[in-house]
Amino acid sequence: MTAIEVDRLTKRYGATVAVDDVSFTVAEGEIFGLLGRNGAGKSTTVDLVAGLRAPDQGRIRVAGLDPRRDRQELHHLLGVQLQESQLPDRLTVAEAMRLYASFYRRPADIAGLLAQLDLTDKRNTAYRRLSGGQKQRLSIALALIGRPRIAILDELTTGLDPVARRDTWQLIDDIRNQGVTIMLITHFMDEAERLCDRVAIMRDGRLAALGAPAELGRPTLDDAFIELTSRALTGRRQS
């Protein structure tokens, strides 16, 4: 079964082509990595898949739904963790969970999710009093509160210390083992190598490579990434 299907996707902002003829599919139960330098088109791709923007060309299906036309239904099945998205300072963890749970038809058990994300002790803490790692875990919890079939996690470990990063990786594994398909946006190669079944590397809005990390690794995924994406810097292009 295909969870996400992206076919010849193009999105322009004025003269800039943010996403240029991109195609990939994500299988159900897979952890799929979307890699690329800043400005490569990762976040725009996320916006398009999540139905936040309309594509100029191409076709997207998420769980068989059109993200624009079937937006309402899609948002019951899709959990999204957005980069740099915050919550009101004075909202507590439990209040945020209850609020987001109220949006969904069959929300997850709040206490269980808080325990899984190690936030039980913090449930009455205001958002502004949380550490970076705790905020990040809360953001993941909110992405999972609607029991999504598919989760998009954007730059989930940016700013976390090494221990918190490894804990988060373990958590992603656990979530996948519960049957959730995951699209992970990252620029950490070790993270992609450790977690992803397959990765797509984007450069200048295009897909530069697609495959299992081991297939792309030459000798490591890090090397492949630098080789594939640094061409943009020197201006040399490979079509």
Binding site: A50, L52, L82
Partner: peptide, 16 residues
């Protein structure tokens, strides 16, 4: 503030 902190965008990904 809700726009700046991306609260509105985050809500745009929920059924609400």
């Amino acid at each position: 503030g809700y726009r700046e902190r991306r609260v509105l965008r985050r809500l745009a990904t929920t059924p609400a």
